[in-house]
Computed example of a mutant assay.
Amino acid sequence: MTKTLTTVWALAVASVTAAAGSMAQAQQIQGSAKAGEGKIAMCIGCHGIQGYQASFPEVYKVPMISGQSAPYISAALQAYKKGERRHPTMRGIADSLSEQDMADVAAYYAEHGQARAAAAAREPSAQVAALLQKGACVSCHGEGFAKPIDPSYPKVAGQYADYVYAALKSYKVENNAHVGRSNGVMAGIAKQFSNSELKALSRYIASLDGELQTVPQPHFRLGKKD
């Protein structure tokens, strides 16, 4: 247990150090929420519809991103563009975006979802509490899974359980050109757990109150014209 947590913390420190360098560079590009509103045409077809489900690589609800932090959204898009996150649709979208586009889109979604405030975390069951301790999850994702220690880490409180489960499993995938995520910290954590344990963690995270939401887009109101 001690050895596992020490390894996780060592990886986390290395990741934060690397992220700090990346963020310093990213901070030179200021995102504009107003500009971002005109750049989300490829996003709203999935992220602008309540409960919309992806069908690849499995069926799950696409994540809520309104209210997510701008640095995290930018970092995620960069990861898709670099192939560190492997998903053909998201890779294609990210490839079409410049760094300024990413910053603008990220600023839009970060500002777009601030109507809800995070509430106190619910107490986990004994099983989930043991899993959370084993993974040292709050050491990065913060109090109530809504206050990450680094803005390039995601808020996950209240996120869809099936998406969280799919995301966690993806860190366990190796040698697949189309599916999976490359992240030393998260891979090391996710591989400690069975899929049933990851599902239990995902259900708990989804039960928490947080800032994430899907804000329906007027573009999809039937009978309306732009």
Rank of each mutant, 00 (worst) to 15 (best):
K34T: 12
K147A: 08
C46W: 05
M42D: 13
N175Y: 10
D209Y: 00
I44Y: 06
L201H: 10
A119I: 15
C140I: 02
I40A: 01
Y204E: 09
H141E: 01
G113D: 00
K155D: 00
A206V: 03
Y108K: 05
A206N: 15
A26M: 08
A106Y: 02
L222G: 15
K34I: 11
C140L: 03
Y204Q: 08
V128P: 01
K3R: 07
T2V: 04
S96M: 10
V173E: 09
F220P: 11
L5T: 11
M90A: 14
C46A: 07
W9D: 12
D101T: 09
A33F: 03
D226H: 12
V215P: 01
V215G: 07
A79H: 08
A136G: 14
M186K: 04
S152E: 00
Q133H: 12
K172D: 11
G188C: 06
P218I: 08
R86N: 03
L132M: 07
Q127K: 13
Q30I: 15
L201G: 10
G38Y: 04
D95M: 09
A120V: 07
R203D: 15
A121S: 12
M42W: 07
G158E: 06
K172F: 11
A41E: 06
G83W: 09
Y80L: 00
K225T: 15
S152I: 00
V105R: 01
S15C: 13
A14P: 04
K34R: 04
A120C: 05
T7R: 03
P88T: 10
G67V: 11
H87S: 12
S196T: 15
A103N: 10
H47G: 08
A107F: 02
V164F: 05
A136V: 05
A119G: 14
C140D: 03
K39W: 03
M23Q: 10
P154F: 00
L132H: 02
S69V: 00
N183C: 02
L168C: 07
A76L: 08
A33Q: 06
Q78F: 08
K3Y: 10
E37C: 09
L198K: 04
S182R: 04
D104P: 08
L212S: 04
R85F: 04
Q114Y: 06
M23Y: 04
P216T: 14
P124G: 08
I189S: 01
K169W: 03
T17P: 05
N175Q: 13
T89P: 01
Y165R: 01
Q25S: 13
I93C: 02
Q192C: 09
D150Q: 05
T214R: 05
G180A: 03
Q53N: 12
M90Q: 12
G184N: 10
A79L: 05
F145A: 08
V59I: 15
F56W: 14
Y163P: 03
A10N: 14
Y60C: 11
Y60N: 11
V156D: 04
L222P: 10
Y80K: 03
A107G: 11
S202R: 07
A126D: 13
K34V: 13
T17W: 06
S55E: 14
Y165S: 06
A94I: 10
Q217G: 03
A126N: 04
P88M: 09
P57I: 02
A118M: 02
